[in-house]
């Protein structure tokens, strides 16, 4: 294996990791504010993928442009889910919350199967397989674009959370729910907003990987697990942790696929995951919150 192959895999790992980070950030915001682990996260992403697929095939909207439609729609989808279902179990036992989110995820994936069959769908754009060449290293065009969009969204979200009153109120709710209530913050509304944002992130990630990934109803479960690993690795509730976690997982997958073999990449990912947790059980960024 040459050095350029390694460099190549590092770069594509980083690019994929950016999208993973987006999925992880969504999960970590939901967990940070509600203390609920959203086991339907990957399925929400799947809904985003199908949305992107149909916007492209039926209306001819480019997947990357369709983010502008997918993101607000998925926000509403998540906000509605929170308002109708999750808000009812916020003070329930964790196992009940887990059952609810798993159930919602199953309903989503099975509805998708019913509506669209379990056939794999492929979204092929004119640039799906095109790439830029840079000093002997080729950079996939769709991956690069999706990475740039991810960066913009992450920066925008960070700005929203740190610089706006509503963003700060979401952080306050995550840090001390009762104190937030005593400051006149409507924590139920903040929960709806957070689940909306988390879903928008997952849905957007779905849109961004749609041009490079197979689209099928069960695609979510693998990503739920991935999102969970990313957020635990980075430290539950930390946005910087989730970003870091996403990029690390992307890198490890990509580099171990070329250096060992692609069947072994999950083994390496989980080995590193366990190793980090053994050394730092609270995750890379520790207990820090939103």
């Amino acid at each position: 294996m040459t050095f350029s192959v390694l460099l190549q895999s590092i770069i594509s790992g980083m690019l994929v990791g950016g999208v993973y980070a987006l999925i992880g950030i969504g999960l970590t915001i939901i967990f940070g504010v509600m203390r609920v682990i959203n086991f339907a996260h990957g399925d929400i992403m799947m809904v985003g993928m199908y949305l992107t697929f149909f916007l492209f095939t039926l209306l001819g909207i480019d997947p990357f442009v369709s983010v502008l439609i997918t993101m607000p729609l998925m926000f509403l989808f998540g906000a509605l889910m929170q308002k109708v279902f999750i808000n009812r179990v916020l003070s329930a036992l964790p196992q009940n919350q887990i059952l609810l989110t798993i159930g919602l995820g199953l309903i989503m994936s099975n509805s998708a199967m019913l509506a669209f069959t379990s056939d794999y769908k492929i979204l092929t754009t004119s640039y799906s397989s095109s790439s830029y060449s840079l000093g002997g290293i080729s950079i996939s065009q769709p991956l690069l674009i999706s990475f740039l969009i991810t960066c913009a969204i992450t920066v925008g979200l960070y700005w929203f959370l740190m610089r706006t009153d509503t963003g700060q109120a979401i952080r306050a709710t995550a840090q001390d729910r009762e104190a937030a209530q005593l400051m006149g913050i409507n924590v139920k509304w903040m929960s709806i907003l957070s689940f909306g944002i988390g879903s928008a992130m997952a849905g957007t990630a779905g849109a961004l990987i749609a041009p490079t990934y197979y689209i099928f109803p069960q695609v979510g479960s693998a990503f739920t697990l991935k999102a969970f690993v990313i957020t635990v690795l980075g430290g539950m509730g930390s946005i910087i942790g989730a970003t870091l976690g996403g990029i690390i997982i992307g890198l490890v997958e990509s580099v171990s696929a070329v250096t060992i073999s692609s069947e072994w990449k999950d083994v390496v990912v989980f080995a590193i995951f366990l190793l980090v947790l053994l050394i730092k059980p609270s995750g890379l960024m520790g207990k820090s919150r939103l």
Binding site: Q168, A169, A172, Q175, E178, L182, M183, I185
Partner: peptide
């Protein structure tokens, strides 16, 4: 308005950010 027992300061926010949350 209540100032709760155990202060319940937002731990990951600065003093100024905590105050600004008071005028949410």
């Amino acid at each position: 308005v209540q100032v709760p027992e155990g202060r319940k300061i937002f731990p990951e926010m600065t003093v100024l950010e905590n105050l600004r949350m008071g005028s949410f």
